[in-house]
C-alpha cells in the first residue's frame, strides 16, 4: 500500500545503501587482514546493493526487483562466508531466515525460508545438534509473526473502516452498505430516494500527468463542494476511482436537480493549479416506485458506466 510512495522508496534506498556500506566495510576488512582472495565477492555484492538502491528510487512502481537483488546479495555473502567462519560464527546463520521477511511479502518469504532451511542448517552447523536446529526453526516461526500482525491490522481496517483512505467520502464498500440501508429506510418510511452520479474525467490522468498532489486537489475540491451543497444526512461515497455517488434520501427529482445545479455552480469558478478548471459529468437517478434494490443498483451502475465512457 505505502510501498509505492516516494518517501517509502527513500527509506528503503537508505537501508540498501547502509547494506552496501556494510559489505564495502567487510571487503576493506579482508584487505587489511591480507585475505586478498576474499575481497572480491563482498566488493561486487556491495556494488549490487548500490544498484538496488538506485533502482528502488527509479522504479518506484516495482519495489520487488531491488528487494530481490538485495536478498540475492545477502544470501550469496552468507553462503560464501559461512564456511570460512568457525566456532561462534553459528550466530550468522540466524540472518538467513530474517532477510527474506524484511525484504519480501509474507507468502514468498515463508516459502523461501521453508525451502532453504535444510541448506542453511547444513552450512551453519558442523555441530548439527538438535538444539541448534530447534533454535533455527524457532527464528523461522517467530520472525514472520510481525508480518502476520501487520497484515491482520491492515485487513481489519479495510474491512471495518467505511471511509475512503484518500478523501472525505465513503469507500466503495462503505457506500454500497450505506446505500442499501438507506434504500430500506426510505422504502419503509415511504420516502423518495435520489442518487447523483458524479464522474471526474480528469482524475484518471491527473496522477500520471501532474502527480499525486494534483489528484488530491481534485478529490478534495469535489468532496468539499459536494458536502457543502448537500444536507447533513446526505452522503458522498466513492463508487470507483473516478466516480462518486451522492446519495440524497427523502429528496424528490426536483430537489435532486437543485442539488446538481448548486454543485455545478460551486465547481464552475474553481481553477486548480495544474489541471485548470474542473470538469464533471453528472447524472441523476431516482428510485422508481416498487423497484427492488438489485434493480436500482443495476441502473446506477449502468448510468455510471455511461458517464465514464462518455
Amino acid at each position: 500500500m505505502d510501498e509505492g510512495n516516494p518517501a517509502a522508496a527513500g527509506r528503503f534506498a537508505i537501508a540498501y545503501v547502509a547494506g552496501a556500506l556494510l559489505l564495502a566495510g567487510y571487503a576493506t576488512w579482508h584487505y587489511l587482514m591480507g585475505h586478498y582472495a576474499r575481497i572480491l565477492p563482498p566488493a561486487l555484492l556491495a556494488l549490487l546493493m548500490l544498484v538496488a538502491a538506485v533502482l528502488r528510487l527509479v522504479l518506484i512502481a516495482w519495489p520487488r526487483i531491488p528487494a530481490y537483488l538485495v536478498l540475492i546479495a545477502g544470501y550469496l555473502l552468507l553462503a560464501l562466508e559461512l564456511p570460512h567462519l568457525d566456532g561462534e560464527a553459528v550466530i550468522w546463520v540466524g540472518l538467513a531466515p530474517v532477510l527474506p521477511l524484511l525484504l519480501l511479502p509474507l507468502a514468498p518469504a515463508l516459502l523461501l525460508n521453508v525451502a532453504l532451511a535444510p541448506l542453511w542448517l547444513l552450512l551453519g552447523g558442523e555441530a548439527l545438534d538438535g538444539e541448534f536446529v530447534l533454535s533455527y526453526l524457532a527464528i523461522m516461526t517467530l520472525a514472520p509473526l510481525a508480518l502476520w500482525e501487520q497484515r491482520r491490522q491492515r485487513a481489519l481496517l479495510l474491512a471495518t473502516d467505511p471511509r475512503d483512505p484518500n478523501c472525505q467520502a465513503l469507500s466503495h464498500d462503505g457506500l454500497h452498505a450505506h446505500l442499501e440501508s438507506e434504500f430500506q429506510r426510505t422504502a419503509l418510511l415511504h420516502q423518495p430516494l435520489a442518487i447523483l452520479v458524479i464522474h471526474l474525467p480528469q482524475l484518471e490522468m491527473a496522477s500520471e500527468q501532474f502527480g499525486r498532489r494534483a489528484r488530491q486537489a481534485l478529490l478534495d475540491t469535489l468532496c468539499n463542494e459536494a458536502t457543502r451543497c448537500s444536507r447533513r444526512h446526505d452522503f458522498l461515497g466513492r463508487h470507483s476511482d473516478t466516480t462518486f455517488w451522492l446519495v440524497l434520501p427523502d429528496t424528490s427529482e426536483n430537489g435532486a436537480q437543485l442539488v446538481q445545479q448548486r454543485i455545478l455552480q460551486a465547481l464552475e469558478p474553481v481553477v486548480l493549479i495544474d489541471t485548470g478548471s474542473l470538469r464533471t459529468h453528472m447524472g441523476l437517478c431516482q428510485r422508481l416506485p416498487g423497484e427492488s434494490w438489485q434493480r436500482l443498483r443495476q441502473r446506477l451502475c449502468n448510468l455510471t458506466h455511461r458517464l465514464e465512457t462518455q
Binding site: 561462534e88 553459528v90 550466530i91 546463520v93 540466524g94 540472518l95 531466515p97 530474517v98 521477511l101 524484511l102 538444539e131 541448534f132 533454535s135 533455527y136 524457532a138 527464528i139 517467530l142 520472525a143 514472520p144 509473526l145 510481525a146 508480518l147 500482525e149 501487520q150 491490522q153
Partner: peptide, 17 residues
C-alpha cells in the same frame, strides 16, 4: 551462548506495529 542466534529476531520485533 545458547540463544545467540536469536539476536536476529530484533529486526522482526521492530517490524511489529
Amino acid at each position: 551462548e545458547r540463544h545467540a542466534l536469536w539476536l536476529w529476531l530484533w529486526p522482526a520485533a521492530l517490524l511489529l506495529p
